[in-house]
């Protein structure tokens, strides 16, 4: 099934990837080839077959609610791209208007 450049641009937006025009063109062709190949799953996945989301036979794993020391603010901020007053400094998230 064809994947248009417009669709790739939408996927890039959803994926938070600021792609170049050249990348959009390249990915359109590649994604189409891959999606065509993987669509084969539709040949055998008939009604009534339950999905498997996970290989481990585990449901609702619990552990005791034990307090352990956190890593602390200094360690948490140590690798921050930008920090200020003991906090992560981030770009604005709201527009002015």
């Amino acid at each position: 099934m064809p994947i248009t450049r417009v669709e790739v641009a939408h996927l890039a937006t959803l994926s938070r990837l600021a792609l170049s025009d050249e990348e959009l063109d390249r990915y359109a062709g590649q994604l189409e080839a891959i999606i065509t190949a993987v669509a084969r799953v539709q040949e055998v996945a008939a009604e009534g077959i339950p999905p498997t989301s996970h290989a481990a036979d585990l449901v609702n794993v619990f552990r005791s609610d034990v307090v352990v020391p956190p890593i602390g603010a200094a360690a948490a901020l140590d690798q921050a791209p930008a920090a200020e007053q003991g906090r992560f400094r981030v770009p604005r998230i709201l527009t002015e208007d």
Binding site: L14, Y27, L31, I34, A39, A45, P50, P51
Partner: peptide
């Protein structure tokens, strides 16, 4: 990595989820 992120985003998108991710999970059962 970009290719796979977009491929996954596509497979999980509303409208495509059942046809791709859902079917793949059924194949996993098989």
């Amino acid at each position: 990595v970009k290719r796979r992120i977009m491929l996954g985003t596509y497979a999980l998108s509303s409208g495509y989820y059942d046809a791709y991710y859902g079917k793949a999970q059924q194949v996993r059962t098989l």
